[in-house]
């Protein structure tokens, strides 16, 4: 007897229901509110794998197994290039990305209806079948990080505003002088008065001042916004 069913690794209440919407047989139910996790009714499912391709979370898998066989086929969503070829031997990875064995690629489906998420069907041994979640995409550089001694205590000063070249220590000195408003700290420190118009550094200034004064950013006030919001050439302003 053949059995086709899906596995859903969707454990968190997020607002999402394409699996429910695409299923022609109402085998998946999210219902209302939309944040509920999907429930699966195997008896209604015909194993069409539409849900596997549509799931934005890439977390639905189709399992095909046959009674008496020590093999099973897992169809997984796959979004990497190059795609594996039919008949190719693939390293099979589990939920934690650990290699758990090998499988043979039986089908590769990548038509318009999958919208870029290819369906890769891999035949694996029953022993690892239900754990299979991915196939190895490429050998990556997984060199181990190196332990560094004596890094923690030293304070290194650095620029907090690169346009106006203001050092963190300079900002702190000013803030400690008793400047209690963000607009004034901007005026005195020049953080945020440069070419980027504060887009890269205002936030840093807010949080630094908040740390020093113990006030919330909301209490520190927001500097005025002045035209133009992007640098504009003088001759353009000429009209």
């Amino acid at each position: 007897m053949k059995r086709k069913y899906i596995l859903i690794d969707c454990f968190q209440d997020i607002p999402c229901n394409p699996c429910e919407e695409i299923c022609p047989h109402k085998a998946i139910e999210v219902g209302s509110p939309i944040t509920r996790t999907p429930r699966y009714y195997e008896e209604r499912c015909d194993g069409c794998a539409k849900c596997v391709a549509v799931c934005p979370g890439l977390c639905i898998y189709l399992v095909e197994e046959e009674e008496g066989s020590d093999k099973m086929t897992i169809t997984l969503p796959y979004e990497f290039l190059p795609l594996p070829r039919k008949g190719e031997l693939a390293s099979v990875l589990d939920y934690n990305g650990r290699e758990v064995g090998q499988g043979i690629v039986k089908r590769v489906k990548n038509t318009k209806s999958e919208n870029g998420t290819a369906l890769i069907s891999v035949e694996v041994s029953r022993a690892i079948g239900l754990a299979a979640r991915n196939i190895l995409i490429r050998k990556t550089d997984d060199s181990e990080p190196e332990l560094v001694e004596g890094e923690r205590e030293s304070f290194t000063d650095f620029q907090i505003c690169r346009c106006e070249e203001v050092l963190l220590s300079e900002l702190r000195t000013l803030a400690k002088m008793g400047i209690v408003f963000a607009p004034n700290l901007r005026r005195f420190s020049r953080v945020g008065l440069g070419l980027c118009q504060g887009k890269a550094c205002s936030e840093l200034m807010f949080s630094e001042l908040s740390n020093i004064t113990g006030m919330t950013v909301g209490e520190l006030g927001h500097p005025k916004a002045r035209p133009p919001v992007r640098p504009i050439k003088l001759r353009e302003l000429f009209g």
Binding site: P15, C16, N17, P18, E21, I34, G57
Partner: peptide, 9 residues
């Protein structure tokens, strides 16, 4: 994510 209102999928 979302529903068809938001183009989910």
């Amino acid at each position: 994510f979302g529903s068809h209102h938001h183009g989910a999928g």
